[in-house]
Design a protein around this nucleic acid. Sequence first.
DNA 1: GAGTTTGAAACT
DNA 2: CAGTTTCAAACTC
Length: 946
Amino acid sequence: MDSPEIRKIKANTTSSSDSPPVQDSPVFSYINNLSPIQPVKASHLAQGFPVLNSPPLVFTSPRINSHRDTSFLKSAEKPKTQDEAKKFLDGPVDPKITQLHMRLITDSQDCETKIRAESQQCSSSEGVDEYLADPSEVDCVDSTQSASPCLKQSNNVPETFTGSKETTLYDNKHNTGTDLGTEAKAPSEQATEDLEGKQPFDAKPVKIIEQSDGELPYDECPNIESGLSVDNAYKREYRQHLHDQLQDRGGKHQDDCDHTPQSPPGRLQIVQVYENSAENVGAISKGMIGNMILHAPKARSEQGGIHRRCLQFEEAPPCATGKRDCSLSSIQEVNNSELPSGTGESKLVKLSYADLKATSKRQMGTSLPPRYGGNSPSTVPKPSGIGLHLNSIVNAAPLVRGTTRSIKLADHYIGVQVMKSASVMSSHLPDNVRSHSILLNMVEKDSAGPEDRDESETSIAASSAVPQSPHTVVFEGHGPTHEKRGFDAENVDDYEECKQSSPKKKRKKTSSSKDTDGTKRCNCKKTKCLKLYCDCFAAGVYCAESCACQGCFNITDYEDTVLETRQHIESRNPLAFAPKIVQHEEEIQFTPSSARHKRGCNCKKSMCLKKYCECYQANVGCSSGCRCDGCKNVYGRKGEYIPIEHGVGKDNVSDRIESTFDEKLEMVATKKDILSAELYDSHNLTPLAPSFQCSDHANNVPKSPCLPTSYLPSPESDLTIISSYEKSTRSPLRHSESSDILLETSKELSDLGSYNWRVDYDNIGIVDTFSPRCDAAPTTCHITPMSDLCSMAMASSTSSKTSDWTNASQVQLCPGSHGLSSDSSLHRRSSPVTPMTRLGGTKSFQGLDFENGLYDILQDDTPEILKDTSTPIRSLKVSSPNKKRVSPPHSHNHELGASSSGALKSGRKFILKAVPSFPPLTPCIGSKGGSIIQNMSNLQDKGRKK
DNA sequence: GAGTTTGAAACT
DNA sequence: CAGTTTCAAACTC
């Protein structure tokens, strides 16, 4: 967030120097600049307008767009000089914004046009070239036509700039969106220049804008119980647009910085950019992109709709993304700034682009840690803060939340799909895939309609469908306010209907809380999805379209509300969002036995034989912690749980583990409490639970492959793990220094863990693969020592992680659990025994890594869900609770060993989380995934910071 | 599809 | 901490 001062300064400078005579008195402009809000705009304008000379031209050129909003255009045009522009932006901005909002409410199209005009003016980055070009373009009201010209123009202008992408995109938008772009073009040149020189600048202005704009929307948000009012929806859309734009810009800037993509024109640019960002993604992503592009050309309007959706998704994601991480506010601001630029079509492109960016970021960041991920220097960002995923993720979740939320949905959603699709893989892919999948999903959903959504979701991976959605257009109208809603309700009006009517439909679909895809759906009617009653909320995921909830606030639009609520709940019960199901090592895949419901059930009549029982629902056995009567849980009865370990010989260990695990969880919770909000990061750190899980995973993994028959638990490993774990956990607590704590804790944990691991490792002798992990994910990894396989698996996962970390640049997939991140950091600090040996091997592992990462992460979050779907059931089915541990089914092994996916599955085991199931592909999943990713990224970031 | 049952979550 | 209420999912018809 740039301080207003900077903006002011800029504005001042610009006004003084650039705007000589502005029509408006300099004083006036200056004053305007002084106001924080104005400054932003001013700065923004300054950027855009500096060159400005051309403004008159702009005015001169009658734009088709003007048809829509002549007045608006006029207003926009007026600010020819920088000062004027500033004033216009600043002063006018608010009014405009308000007006825009009003119009948005009344007419989305009008809003778009206005926005476009504003954006053009504001951004007005376009250069003279564009201006010249305008004539043709201008004439070309059609977005399509305009697009091409725009592209040209954009090409001309932006190429030079690293940041050109943004500008170009912007221009394109303008052009495509409205011819108006020409008006602003002249100024735009300066703006572009400014941008070049001052990229940060853009962000600032945007941010500032946000403040002004953002406030309104938020304010409204709360209002909503109904929330769904059309106005709100429009507002939301508007916001989203802004966000999207902002993201695009910000992302572009960042991306540009990183990628320095030249400004390809129009959509192509976007695509290119996307590709650039998503280079890692690979062919798949490209294909997706290609599809998108193709589609886009077809119907702009449709595209626009799609884009919006994307944007909407992005919106959420943006938050998640590293850049977004910077702050929601910033994002909003950005969005606001963007608003002007964004137009329906252009938005689409942008959105897609933004989405791509987001995805790319996600990929980079998420899979990589979003924050880091990104090119954006901003990576630092904050701790994400909120993460809805918490449940699944537990520790990580918190961190992820904030940033991820928005992303979550998309990411999870996508991520799930990705997972499904194939788990495709490469860590990189996932992100890209996600983005793509998201877009696709969005499109599909739109096209398919609410009912079909589920299916679409499932298919998402395929992606091909994307373009189809005619609905998308409708969507635009909606506004992306709520993802759900947006999707659900094509029209705002419809929206309410959807709310009310949809539930039934949804219900039908959803009758089961889970979609076919495995995504969760809720049907909340009174809680607004802001209580733990809501599975989505409890899982730390945003509600998905498929949800039939009414008055849902668990959407990206209400991130603040969601976060607040979350925090409130966590304040009461730090573990409220912690995974409900904890797994212990071995069982992971094979037998759920190890997994247990943390709180235990309280069944009185269901005998733990129905889904009323959370234990049963999670496919885990009841434990001593359960207060159930007449427990007949097929997965393990109350008293049997302990025995499992005994039976295996690990019983003691397992018990210990459990206890330790619980303790850890508690510890984590306490930490959370302590650090709470700030600690999203800490959550990451809180690895305790996760680490635990990881350790379990490790054990499990090895088991499956290596020890199919008997699980020879290496008690030592377990013990060591436990000890290390405890130490780590405890130590953190001890340190309990808020922000630092996390790092410290992680370090300690890693250190302790690594230490122990090392010992174990040494004992084992499999150091290579293993060591990295140990270092990275100290505690958890340690467990793995059991078998070489285990070590291998761990190593693979860890290695990948480590490699990723080391490589850092990579998106990484899954950055793994907190522990990993912390570990990584640790490694860095204290080279682990086998320091990066893995790096080399990482690639091969990446797939695994990804999975592992997910797996590990899963421990924390989403992956779990995903895994859960697969694993839990399997494990449950496979074995009886007690015996489960004894022998994991080969099939499991195969699964696990065969593919990374298997690993993931195993990962799931660890953390079932509240939702045993399966991770909803839908937004929820996405969110989770995002959270995971975010967590991962956070961890990585932390490690880096360290 | 409507209604009932169930147990978790929330509240007192 | 226990008891009650509320809630939404799971289940039944």
